[in-house]
Amino acid sequence: MADEARKKEIFEKLRNGVIQYDEDACREGAQEAMAEGLDANEAIFDGLVSGMEEVGRLFEAQEYFVPEILMCADALYAGLDILKPHCKQMDLGVKGSVVIGTVEGDVHDIGKNLVKMMFDVAGFTVYDLGRDVPLDKFVDEQLKTDSELVCLSAMMTTSMVGMPKVIEKIKAKNPDCMIMIGGAPTSKELADRWGADGYAEDASNALKEAIKMVAFLKKLRDEKIQKK
């Protein structure tokens, strides 16, 4: 087992690899982590995700823009692909599955893919429907997979307006399912008005919201079971 200093060095390599969009460094760091017998979950969260958090900060500070974030995401996946098979069980206190896609009429999927990445990292089972997804497909897929969470994304105002229809249909069939909307034109006000449970205008917000929502859902279910 590696000592603390070596562990720190490897996690730092993963973190910096993401920040500096260096896919090779992330790959190397991940291989070193495995060779040293480090915990894969820890390497993901204290290395890769920690790097992504800094990327989020750089984006907010307008030092990084979307091209940089996309390259950072590639670097993160380069490390994640190696580490993921070694993960025993993600210990976030929650475990969930999610249906995700960009709504019909919208072919933009960059935001959706970033959110998906965060779910991948967190160990969610992700059912990615892609982009320009007919509204009913979200409803069908949720029923089929019994996912706790559905994420709807839209980049254009002109496609966002399909969202309330999906929310209404899913809630009618499965009131316990949590729905999160996201994308540039969405807002907290719209989420509230349309009956969505969460709202995220960017990827890092979406993950936080998603974990909160799933944890809340588990709590509700646990309470129901206790009452029985």
Binding site: E104, G105, D106, V107, D132, M156, T158, S159, V161, G162
Partner: peptide
């Protein structure tokens, strides 16, 4: 392009 000819509501054409 796709003009969504069957759509009931308003869907703008996409590539």
């Amino acid at each position: 392009i796709n003009v969504y000819p069957q759509a009931d509501g308003i869907l703008y054409p996409t590539i």
